[in-house]
Write a protein that binds this DNA or RNA. Structure first.
Lengths: 166, 166
DNA sequence: CTATATGCAAAACGTTTGCATCCCT
DNA sequence: AGGGATGCAAACGTTTTGCATATAG
């Protein structure tokens, strides 16, 4: 996982290139977002807002919202939905990629990489004469046996798994 | 593609089993949703509402909303998001399944089936000790050459392709 | 200094629900 | 007749914006 300091650096560079300002709010939000310790793996804007607020109560929701958008533009954050209605974000490592498996039992979001699938996706796009620029894939399933605590302990979303969308 | 009449029949049966009523609104909404002629392939609740309203101006938005939920329960509709914030629905053929490729140039939503990917998804779930119950996969890409009118003519979403979510 | 960013509060959006009335079964 | 369904309008939760003020460069 990318270190918070690296992410901050990448953001600072990005902002510089764009003629935008590197404020202390943006630094803090980025640090919290990439904090390896207590960070939630897929925070919503509000989740992140609350965590940031614990560090600096003067930061507004809109700033978190706008900074998250900036992080996405900088390639540092990835917006996704796991079935609930809020958009969630996950730290993005330039170059790496993984998809998700959601446990419908406990709401845990497991991550996996599967090169073979990516290759086939390319093939599909190719078949249509397209170049792939991005994709989203979320699997939903249930553990065959009991919900393994070691796995589901990793769950970070609230237990509600009512797929309203996809 | 399933015929509107078949879908209506399936819905009627489903409603009967559940002790629910088969109203003329539900019939009309289902017919419009499955209309092979002018139907949009992935209407949002509002899209469908407008189309239904053209046939019967007295139908309310809430009825369309609730009927769509019913269609999902009956296995006749599939909710998905293609990057915009509204949930979109597509007629579901029991037993069949396809995924989507969104043209970032014109917003067209292309459909494809790829058994090999499905198989690999099962394998992934298996690796985690999970049984797959569902999945969502959307590819985003651009045509290598010009946007082929024959393909993009199929586009049904508005041209806005600003992935806010996934 | 000036352009950009912030924080607040309010607007916008899509979705969902309460309720009086209506209508299938 | 009676329980479910409808339509309206209002409630919701999340996302987005306007604007006066503060701040980085």
């Amino acid at each position: 996982m990318i270190k918070a300091a690296d992410a901050v650096k990448i953001l600072a560079d990005f902002l510089g290139e764009q003629g935008l300002k590197f404020t202390h709010q943006r630094r803090l939000i980025t640090e919290v977002f990439f904090d390896p310790e207590a960070r939630q793996e897929h925070p919503s804007t509000e989740d992140l807002y609350l965590r940031v607020r614990a560090q600096d109560p003067r930061i507004g929701y809109a700033t978190v919202y706008r900074t998250l958008k900036l992080l996405v533009d900088a390639g540092l954050a990835n917006p996704t939905r796991f079935g609930d209605k809020q958009v969630r974000f996950e730290p993005e490592i330039p170059g790496e990629h993984h998809d998700h498996l959601v446990c419908e039992e406990c709401g845990a979001v497991l991550e996996f990489e599967e090169g073979a699938i990516e290759a086939l996706q390319e093939a599909v796009a190719d078949r249509f004469g397209f170049t792939l620029s991005d994709h989203r894939m979320v699997l939903y399933g249930r553990p065959k046996g009991d919900c393994d605590p070691a796995i589901c302990k990793r769950g970070d979303t609230t237990t509600r798994v009512s797929r309203t969308d996809g």
